[in-house]
Amino acid sequence: MPRAQAPGMSAPALWRWTAAPLARLGLSGRTLVILVPVIWLLVFFLIPFLVVAKISLSEPMIAQPPYAPLGTWDGLRLTLDLNFGNYAFLLDDPLYLNAYVFSIQTAFVSAALALLIGYPMAWYIARSPEPRRTLLLLLVILPFWTSFLLRVYAWQGFLRSNGVINNFLIATGIIDTPLVMLQTNFAVYLGIVYTYLPFMILPLYATLVKLDDSLLEASADLGARPVATFFHVTLPLSMPGVIAGFMLVFVPAIGEFVIPELLGGPNTLMIGKVLWGEFFSNRDWPVASAVAIVMLVVVVVPFMLLRNAQARAEAE
């Protein structure tokens, strides 16, 4: 009795019509799997990056779009007109250098604070019994279910002169005049640490939960007090999580725009704000692009150096 034909295409038929012709073109399944993300990165990362790099080398002009073409083609002759003036301009005006330094400083301090706060939290979650662990992790990521913008606005309500914190402190008689918290660098640090803390906790948790209890016991057995065990065993073994968490906070914090805009004051000059100003207020796309390219280099180069150092340490 012949077997009933399955609805749709059977697996061999599927193979005959899709994979087989591709295989004839020299595309194996493995290549196809890799090809998809490669095309994605190409279209949505590399090409836009090249466009921005191209704009950063052109002359600003009042037109649509607001920059001069990079070169001319008169039918026989290609003339390239590369303008490095935008980069020179960044070096000229201390505003940009200050913004870079301040951004990196802010991101670094915020990441360090997030590490100090996040490590004990991650440790506590990792050491909790199984069912409670799931609940605590859920609580860590729960804020993401509310809009990020809304949460930063909410901080305004807390930090304002007549906000929740000041009202409480005045009502309890601890202070007479309200503290200035909003529009300060303190508020920016607070906002960044608050927003990015889960990105610190999750990778730390992932490494700490894998930490073998018997290693901690072995350390204690060999005479190490808890503090010594932490610095000699726990911390070195959780370094991958520390580095990952630090990078996940540090990198986005450098280019952060919303938090300094909403919580910072006039003197919180972060590079994201400068970029916004150049692009939308000044409509100087070439300089804005140069700012973006320099920022990318500033972030990517140390990151690559770190990765290299890590790879070398692992190979040893």
Binding site: L215, E217, A218, A220, D221, A224, V233, L237
Partner: peptide, 19 residues
């Protein structure tokens, strides 16, 4: 505490510090 005892232990899994 374990670190104050005159004992040492050899663990079943050896518990060698991997780093």
């Amino acid at each position: 505490a374990p670190y104050d005892r005159p004992t040492n232990m050899m663990f079943q899994s050896y518990a060698l510090f991997p780093h």
